[in-house]
Each structure stands twice: as structure tokens, then as C-alpha cells.
């Protein structure tokens, strides 16, 4: 199942609108500005799953992901008064999330030289490789992991979180043309990395009725 949360089958259906009496993000933020913590909880529940998965795929660390998720929401609360409703709330919260991810990645870069990062990464990486029972999905996860940050980011936002191009452009502060071309590049890279695996998987599954765990 794609990482969308319980309120939201397509990923962003409830943004800024009021379908069938559901309260919009902007309305909730208005309440949060007056310190309404139950309105805040609703917002948290709306975004926590898809943001957690985004952070996880950016940083590849489950514990860290949850810390950053908490920090994201704390920032949203702390800086609630500076939320400008001219923008969609999702644009704002994605900006915060990605800023935090970027800072974390920068921090890691610094430690890489001292070898600290290497140990952590290799252990993490090894355990990830074997994890999923569905081998094709773990192949996909690995393929996404190998995408360079620039491409991984837009790919996750567009194809996994279904964020509209407009919002991606605003969140990342890059032109829409750039967003589109990066998404295309990311998709192409992914296709190329998955090609050999896909072929094997489908060839083999065609010839045998049993489920195969060769990949």
C-alpha cells in the first residue's frame, strides 16, 4: 500500500477544501494559531504517515525518521503564527520536513570522513536488503535508495506522495520546469535499475506457479 494515511486515499484529497464536511487544513491551522491542541492533533494524524515514510526514504533510518517527524510537528506548532494561508498547508509542512532532512544529511556528510557513518550505514544497509518478503518491493526500495538526493526527493514527493508539481516547485523553491525534468530523470533512472530485475521476476513467475524468492 502506498504511504497515504487513513484520511486520504489519493494522498492529498483533503487539502484546502471541504468535501463532505471534512475540515480543511487551513481551517485547522487557524485553530492551531489560537493554541487549539485538538485541531493540531487532527493535522498530525493527517500527515504523520506520509511524512514519516518520506523522511525514512530520505534518511534510511527508522528511529531518526521518527525523531525528525516529531521535530517537524514541533516546528509547525512553534511557528504556527507565521503560517501564511496564501500557501497550501501541505506546501509549508513539506518545506519544513525537507529542510530538516537536508540538515540531517549535511550533518552526516561531515561525519562520513571520520568513518562513523560507514559503520552505521553498512549494518543498516545489510539488514534492509533481506528484510521484505516481497523481493520485488525490496528491489524497488533499494533502487530508490540509490537515486541521487536531488532526484530521490522529487520522485518521492511526486510519485510516492502524489504532491502536485506546483507545490513541489514551491516547497523546494525551484522552477516547475526543473521539477518536471528531475522527476523524468528519476523515473528513467529507476526504470533502468529495475529493468533487469523485472524481466527475471516476470519471466520466472510465468513459468512457475510457486512464489519465488530468488531476487
Amino acid at each position: 500500500m502506498a504511504p497515504s494515511d487513513q484520511f486520504d486515499s489519493t494522498g492529498n484529497a483533503w487539502r484546502g477544501t471541504r468535501p463532505g464536511g471534512q475540515i480543511s487544513d487551513k481551517e485547522l491551522m487557524e485553530k492551531v494559531k489560537s493554541e487549539d491542541t485538538s485541531a493540531f492533533s487532527v493535522l498530525v494524524d493527517r500527515y504523520k504517515v506520509r511524512l514519516l515514510n518520506l523522511i525514512y526514504r530520505m534518511l534510511q533510518d527508522k528511529e531518526e525518521a521518527e525523531d525528525i517527524l516529531q521535530e517537524t510537528f514541533l516546528r509547525v506548532y512553534r511557528e504556527r503564527r507565521s503560517y501564511d494561508p496564501t500557501y497550501a498547508f501541505s506546501t509549508w509542512i513539506y518545506t519544513i520536513t525537507l529542510n530538516l532532512c537536508r540538515n540531517e544529511l549535511k550533518k552526516r556528510k561531515r561525519f562520513k570522513f571520520f568513518g562513523i557513518d560507514l559503520i552505521k550505514n553498512s549494518r543498516e544497509y545489510a539488514s534492509q536488503q533481506v528484510k521484505s518478503s516481497d523481493c520485488l518491493s525490496s528491489t524497488l526500495e533499494n533502487a530508490i535508495r540509490t537515486l541521487p538526493v536531488k532526484y530521490r526527493t522529487v520522485f518521492l514527493l511526486r510519485d510516492v506522495n502524489q504532491l502536485p508539481y506546483e507545490e513541489i516547485s514551491q516547497s523546494l523553491e525551484i522552477p516547475m520546469g526543473t521539477v518536471k525534468s528531475r522527476v523524468n530523470r528519476a523515473r528513467l533512472m529507476l526504470r533502468n535499475r529495475l529493468k533487469p530485475r523485472m524481466k527475471e521476476y516476470y519471466e520466472l513467475s510465468k513459468s512457475s506457479p510457486l512464489s519465488i524468492q530468488l531476487l
Binding site: V44, S132, L136, S137, E141
Partner: peptide
């Protein structure tokens, strides 16, 4: 196939059950 793979078979992480509580 790849497009539907991306849409349907990525593992969805869930936050820990006490996440909301800790946050609040």
C-alpha cells in the same frame, strides 16, 4: 508494472503508537 509497483507495494511505515502522546 513499475508504476503500479511504486504505487502499491512500497512498505508503509507507521509511527510508534505513543507518537501523538509524546508529541503533545
Amino acid at each position: 508494472r513499475i508504476a503500479s509497483l511504486v504505487e502499491e507495494s512500497l512498505e508503509t511505515l507507521k509511527p510508534s503508537p505513543d507518537f501523538n502522546q509524546k508529541l503533545l
